[in-house]
Amino acid sequence: MIETILDIQSLRVSLPTDRGVLNAVRGVDLQIKRGQTLCLVGESGCGKSLTAMSIMGLLPRYAQVTSDRFEMVGQDLSKKTEAKLAKMRGRDVAMIFQDPTSALNPTLTIGRQLTEGVMRSEGLSRKEADARAIELLDRVGISNPAARLTQYPHGFSGGQRQRIMIASALMGRPRLLIADEPTTALDVTIQAQILQLLGELQSDLGLSILLITHDLGVVAAIATEVAVMYAGRIAECASASDLFATPMHPYTKGLLAAIPVPGVTPRGCELPAIPGRVPGLIGTMNGCAFRDRCAHSLSRCADDPVPQYYPGTGRFVECVKAAEAET
């Protein structure tokens, strides 16, 4: 049996606001096994970044987090103190960010930023830490890495900085890498290179990756598993091939239908879009969050709980229609 790196059940994150409690994450289940790349897909504000931040333990102090299970590499995170969580960061789980120009501190050298974590956590000497940094910079494709350690971030291009961020995240040899929109701020050719690099590193190092994106092109390029998130819940979860071949949730279907396919979609025609808007998440909500935008909605869609349907190994859909259609 393949080791489970991350196992979350019923994760809830709420943020107090002036207009009431914002239930940003409303019961999310996620599982990542060793060597998997799980893509968490959804539009802005659906709670995917907050889910990632709660795994890192980096939510703002005022956020309220509850869960039925929150385990990483076999350890229960919900019972750990802040100091113990800090020790896991960088070593068990590491993170890369959307904008590589702002994720590196402009006033510290690359070498310092790469080595400071492991020199503390593993007690490496400067020399050992530098050696690992040089090895990783070389691995992520930064040329002449030894000389680069003394340079500052502003001397590097956006793509190079994202490579440096990846090297920095891998310094502590983490088991799980969380990548929050790692290619959104990069141009398309660099995007492809970064995704390829992540894929290579994953197979070389046996890394598990949780990649957050709103771009289904990125999903197609790198995901082994996909979780589609909508309004703070997972609408559908499946292997990447199943999801693209047979989407089951109406939201997933809508997303896939909105992607133009070269040679198939006629030129100049209007692309299908999902009508309506994302519901507000302040206060409680019953039934399916997508029902107001759904072409197939029924009166039962407003009932709680929304039926969940497990059509195969690792596959999961939360929808009245999908559950009925198959049973």
Binding site: A86, F97, A103, L104, N105, S121
Partner: peptide, 22 residues
Amino acid sequence: GTDYIRAAKAKGLPMRLVISRH
């Protein structure tokens, strides 16, 4: 509020170092 502070925390640095160094 910047990403490099989040990144510094994500490295597991204690808050004291995140503030003084970063």
